[in-house]
Simulated assay, not measured.
Amino acid sequence: MSSKIEIEVYNPQWEMIFHKLKSVLCKEISELVIAIEHVGSTSVKGLGAKTILDIDIVIKDYSIFPRVIQGLEKLGYFHQGNLGIEEREAFGRKDNLVPWGEEKTNWMEHHLYVCPLNSKELFRHLAFRDYLRNYPKIAEEYEQLKRELAKTAKSRECYTFGKGEFVKKVLEKAIND
């Protein structure tokens, strides 16, 4: 059974929640990471999105990855592998209070990934995000596409597949600009 996909209007709280999540993550793993990036649609001001934050933790390389896993496990995350995408390690949450911190917070749903600095997937995430941030008209087109797909897609997989050609074209523009 497919769950309904809902695109909500942009909410400035998304950025604030990202910064709070980043703060909790940094308390545990800051010395191991180069950056913690807010990516995906919720990271683009004005862009409607599913209410799920996408977060990329950037590390120098895989030599420190076991220590990153340990740090994230202390916060309640668990390693899920790369889920079929090389150089992008996914992490699930044990419960809605993850990441566990000093305050018990029921966190917004989020996807957490760890990528080495030279990761192609990290490059794609940042290039797509930055292009949409710099070209609001393209972001509007993307939102219209997402809203249409949310109405017609039979599954999340179909929804994601339906965005593929648009994402590919934007990435080509981003690389060539």
Rank of each mutant, 00 (worst) to 15 (best):
M1H: 06
M1Q: 06
I5Q: 01
E6I: 08
E6R: 08
Y10S: 12
W14D: 00
I17E: 01
H19A: 00
K20P: 02
E28Q: 15
E28Y: 15
I29V: 07
S30K: 13
L32M: 12
V33C: 10
I34D: 04
A35V: 04
I36S: 06
H38A: 05
V39W: 00
V39R: 00
G40N: 02
V44L: 00
K45D: 13
L47I: 01
G48A: 06
K50A: 08
K50G: 01
I55L: 04
D56W: 01
I57R: 06
V58R: 13
V58D: 14
D61T: 10
Y62N: 14
I64W: 07
V68R: 13
I69E: 07
Q70P: 08
L72W: 02
L72C: 11
E73F: 14
L75H: 12
G76P: 06
Y77G: 09
F78I: 03
F78H: 14
Q80C: 12
G84T: 07
G84H: 09
G84M: 06
I85A: 08
I85Q: 12
E86P: 10
E87R: 12
E89W: 13
E89K: 06
A90V: 12
F91Y: 12
F91E: 09
G92A: 07
G92I: 09
N96E: 11
N96F: 05
L97C: 11
W100L: 13
K104F: 07
K104V: 08
N106Y: 10
W107Q: 04
M108Y: 05
M108H: 09
H110C: 04
L112W: 07
L112C: 10
L112F: 10
L112I: 10
Y113H: 10
V114D: 06
C115A: 05
P116N: 13
S119H: 07
S119L: 09
K120C: 09
E121K: 14
L122D: 05
R124S: 13
A127R: 01
R129E: 10
N134C: 15
N134M: 15
Y135W: 15
Y135I: 08
P136I: 11
I138R: 15
I138Y: 12
I138E: 15
A139C: 10
A139Q: 11
E140W: 12
E140D: 14
E141P: 08
Y142R: 10
Q144Y: 08
L145I: 07
K146C: 00
R147M: 01
R147H: 05
E148Q: 04
E148V: 03
E148K: 05
A150V: 01
A150F: 02
K151W: 00
A153F: 00
K154R: 02
R156G: 09
C158I: 03
Y159D: 01
T160Q: 06
T160I: 11
G162F: 05
K163E: 04
E165K: 14
F166Q: 03
F166T: 02
V167R: 03
K168Y: 08
A174R: 03
A174N: 04
N176S: 14
D177F: 11
